[in-house]
Write a protein that binds this DNA or RNA. Sequence first.
DNA 1: CACGTTGATACAGTATAACAGATGAATTTG
DNA 2: CAAATTCATCTGTTATACTGTATCAACGTG
Lengths: 114, 114
Amino acid sequence: MKPTRLDRLPEQLRQELRKARRERGWSQLELGRRIGIPQGHVSGIETGKVVPRFDTLLDLVRVLDRDLILVPRALVPAVQALARDYQEGREARLEAGTRPLYAAEESEGEPDGR
Amino acid sequence: MKPTRLDRLPEQLRQELRKARRERGWSQLELGRRIGIPQGHVSGIETGKVVPRFDTLLDLVRVLDRDLILVPRALVPAVQALARDYQEGREARLEAGTRPLYAAEESEGEPDGR
DNA sequence: CACGTTGATACAGTATAACAGATGAATTTG
DNA sequence: CAAATTCATCTGTTATACTGTATCAACGTG
């Protein structure tokens, strides 16, 4: 992995964001629309071109049904394992009927009135 | 809790930051020095006057031996409980010999070369 | 009391995130 | 193929995080 002094926003986190967005079948435009930021900005964040403010990132992860939480360093491995297992479970359930599952939902979930 | 449209940086998070800093016996000046930001800025963050960039907040929590991690919303309660229990354990151990424990360490731990 | 520390706040100047809008390449779709 | 979609990137403007410096009140300590 290139150190690319551009990952002031951790690459791992960026990948997870992109993955979560795609799981939902949302384009950057769609995701941006939901939290009120332009497509170009979503792109900049996902590619590591800009480091978002904390509140922006929080809006982003929450609309993707995730959250950012503060944990003691000692617990990081355990929590990550927990999260990974959980996700793998979801994915397994997902490919069972290879359908986006989320993509369909055109319920226009409240844009979280920013 | 007041909604105070100032908590774009969640109050709970701010309280935890302040608490963690004090546990270590560090002043805002000392904390700021360790990650390379001025005392006034630390104050602004702790009081909710400014919303830090994600990288700034990450530097902050890491020097306080915490981390920010992305988790599925469904796991938030579980992870928070885990973190709370862990902290309570530490505190109990701490007051046993009511001594800052951290405060002493003047090992000048690498300022995490920003 | 004089002195040092801590934390909040202010101000000016700089850096950059955020926004609006546009373009173009690659890919998908009709 | 033509049209639409998606995403990266660019330009210009605005908002604001961040820096450096300084002041002040509250507190504690010599």
